[in-house]
Design a protein around this nucleic acid. Structure first.
Length: 423
RNA sequence: GUGAGUGUAGCUCAAUUUGGUUAGAGCACUGGACUGUGGCUCCAGGGGUUGAGGGUUCAAAUCCCUUCACUCACCCCA
């Protein structure tokens, strides 16, 4: 009976993993450029961390988390992290990072878990790269994060992603808007779809995001959050936009954009692509000024984003990345037991000098060993047979230009090292 | 959680409409032509419980039922 991977959990195999490595490397580069430090946090946390930070009534907390009791303490529930921000903030508070330096720019990358029905660009274990700026309330922080993302997308060669912006207001001004919106929706409640009627109770802002045609028509006339922003929120949002314009970042305002997590306030954003099917957000995030305090830290503003790696990889495609690193420098072809006995320790010596060597251990025909060498794209082949061994020589063949020379086995590692490093 | 579509060799697909000998092809793999020299060419070979289980039938990849998996969409999100 074969065992298969479980639904929504995928392997990333050679041929595809190179794209992932490329993306990760570019991400580390851009984070370094903006002075972010990496943080590594656990994959499992207390359930309470997520229910408290994301919001009890969000879909994630209500039905998508992998939650289980710990072995010895049945009362304590654990959860596979469904997102990264909660853990980062928890760590920030727990290690009291704010005491030494309240402003922290952190990034993480790794797997997240949500038990949803898999589809294009959506898995149950999925990977995110995220960045957070903690301790800064100024609009420059928001804009910096957006610039970083734009820079990253251009560095990995992603085009066609569009940025949408909105402001959700803050604890001071959002309630008034919410009330107004609710009053508006209540007037036409019977014309809204069933979903939206449910949304009115949980999160009325979500109704704005409905794709149902009738709902879109109704909400077209709904009051806009923009009109309700308090002075501070309005100025903040205007500054963010001004900074984007000044740095030449294209964006579109989308007053209907709503985020799914309760902790967001003020600036929210989403980078989308129309090539992703229905899960079109490749990166998204926003400000979460109350979160640190909610999790037991001092009042500390924050802003962050998360990016879906499989979605990004989907967009980049498995294009050919320069696989030179995977090319062995030398392939040892040995004919005869004596030759093989010589080849094994010789390969070891070369590898210790930093030269990649592949060898055939099966003593197949010369032809098949050559084919193998060609398949793994070896630069050189060193052919050693018992005849050569007796003479103390070997044949070194350049696989790219077919030139081959006879070389002495004495000091072969030096000779090879020289030749290969010269290349 | 709901709906639809698809499951045949490692991969891409034929044969399913109209049930009928031994389920084919290309690519890939292994070997040979070339007895110690890769790619190209030619030849040969290995590889299948037709996703699984049950049913109908003289006969099932093909028809029916069940189940599983995958995919896409709803929902939601990155």
């Amino acid at each position: 009976m074969k065992i298969s991977s479980i639904k929504g959990f995928a392997d990333i195999l050679p041929g595809e993993v190179e794209t992932w490595q490329f993306v990760e490397q570019k991400a580390r580069e851009v984070f370094a450029l903006y002075n972010f430090s990496e943080i590594r946090i656990p994959i499992v946390e207390k359930t309470e961390l997520f229910s408290r930070s994301l919001g009890e009534t969000t879909d994630i907390v209500e039905k998508e988390m992998y939650t289980f009791p710990d072995q010895d303490a049945k009362e304590s529930l654990l959860t596979l992290r469904p997102e990264g921000t909660a853990g980062v903030v928890r760590a920030y508070v727990e290690a009291e990072l704010y005491k030494v330096e309240p402003v922290r720019k952190l990034y993480y990358l790794g797997p997240m878990f949500r038990r949803e029905r898999p589809q294009k660009g959506r898995l149950r274990q999925f990977y995110q790269i995220g960045g957070e700026i903690l301790g800064r309330a100024d609009a420059y922080a928001d804009a910096e994060l957006l610039l970083l993302l734009g820079e990253f997308f251009s560095n990995v060669g992603l085009d066609g992603a569009a940025l949408e912006l909105n402001s959700l207001g803050c604890v001071r001004c959002r309630p008034a808007y919410r009330k107004e919106l609710l009053a508006f929706l209540a007037q036409q409640e019977n014309k809204l779809c069933g979903n939206c009627r449910r949304r009115m109770e949980r999160n009325p802002l979500r109704v704005l995001d409905c794709k149902e045609e009738s709902c879109v028509a109704i909400t077209a006339g709904a009051p806009s959050i923009q009109g309700f922003l308090c002075q501070d929120c309005r100025e903040h949002f205007e500054t963010v936009q001004k900074l984007l314009r000044e740095t030449g970042v294209d964006y579109k305002l989308n007053p209907r954009m709503v985020r799914g997590l309760d902790y967001y306030c003020r600036t929210t954003f989403e980078w989308t692509s129309d090539r992703l099917g229905s899960q079109n957000a490749v990166a998204a995030g926003g400000r979460y000024d109350g979160l640190v305090e909610d999790l037991g830290g001092p009042p500390t503003p924050g802003v962050g984003f998360a990016m879906g790696m499989e979605r990004l990889v989907l967009l980049l495609g498995t294009r050919e990345f320069d696989a030179d690193g995977a090319r062995p420098s030398v392939y040892f072809v040995s004919v005869g037991d004596g030759a093989r006995a010589w080849a094994f320790p010789a390969a070891h010596k070369l590898r210790r000098r930093g030269i990649s060597v592949e060898m055939d251990g099966e003593q197949k025909s010369l032809k098949s060993q050559m084919r193998r060498a060609d398949k793994v794209r070896a630069r050189y082949v060193l052919i050693v047979g018992d005849d050569e061994l007796a003479k103390g020589t070997a044949v070194l063949r350049n696989m790219d230009n077919k030139e081959q020379v006879e070389v002495r086995l004495d000091g072969i590692d030096e000779a090879l090292a020289e030749r290969i490093n010269a290349k």
